[in-house]
Simulated scan of single mutants.
Amino acid sequence: MAILKHPETGERKQIDGEIPFGATYGVEGYDEEQEEFWEQVRVDIDGESWIVVDDGTDMVSLGPDT
């Protein structure tokens, strides 16, 4: 299950499944109040841009025991 957040309203949305890597894109900016750069991963759904909070992908770590 993937979790998305609307960048303007803060509304959160859960969708079934995973968001494919190729469907996302990066957005960068500079916060003048915090004096730091920021980056977000986003995806477009139905013509709207959403921040990807969790892409729903289960990451598997291949360690020395595998």
Rank of each mutant, 00 (worst) to 15 (best):
E35Q: 12
G56T: 02
E28Y: 09
E35S: 07
P20T: 08
E36Y: 02
G17E: 00
A23R: 05
V53S: 04
E35P: 03
E48S: 11
R12A: 10
M59Y: 06
V60P: 03
V41S: 12
Q14K: 03
F37K: 05
E28W: 12
E48A: 11
S61A: 12
V52R: 04
Y25M: 08
V43N: 06
S61L: 12
F21C: 03
S49W: 00
R12Q: 14
F21Q: 12
F37T: 04
V53G: 01
R12W: 15
D16Y: 05
D44F: 11
E32K: 08
Y30S: 01
M59Q: 02
V27M: 04
E11C: 02
D46L: 00
E33G: 02
F21M: 10
M59T: 11
Q34E: 15
I51G: 00
D46N: 14
W50C: 04
Q34N: 05
E28N: 11
E36V: 01
D46Y: 12
K13D: 07
W50Q: 02
E18G: 05
E33T: 07
D44P: 04
Q14R: 03
I15P: 01
D55G: 02
G17A: 05
S49P: 03
G26T: 13
A23F: 07
E35N: 10
A23P: 00
E35C: 06
I19A: 10
V53D: 03
D16H: 07
G47V: 06
Q14T: 12
E18R: 13
W38G: 08
V60I: 14
L62M: 15
K13Q: 09
E48F: 03
R42F: 02
Y30G: 01
V41D: 09
F21V: 11
I15V: 13
K13R: 13
Q14F: 10
V60M: 08
W50F: 07
V60L: 11
D16E: 14
Q34G: 05
D58H: 06
T24V: 07
E32R: 10
V41P: 01
T57M: 07
D46W: 14
W50H: 04
V27T: 13
S49I: 01
T24P: 00
D44Y: 12
K13I: 10
E18V: 15
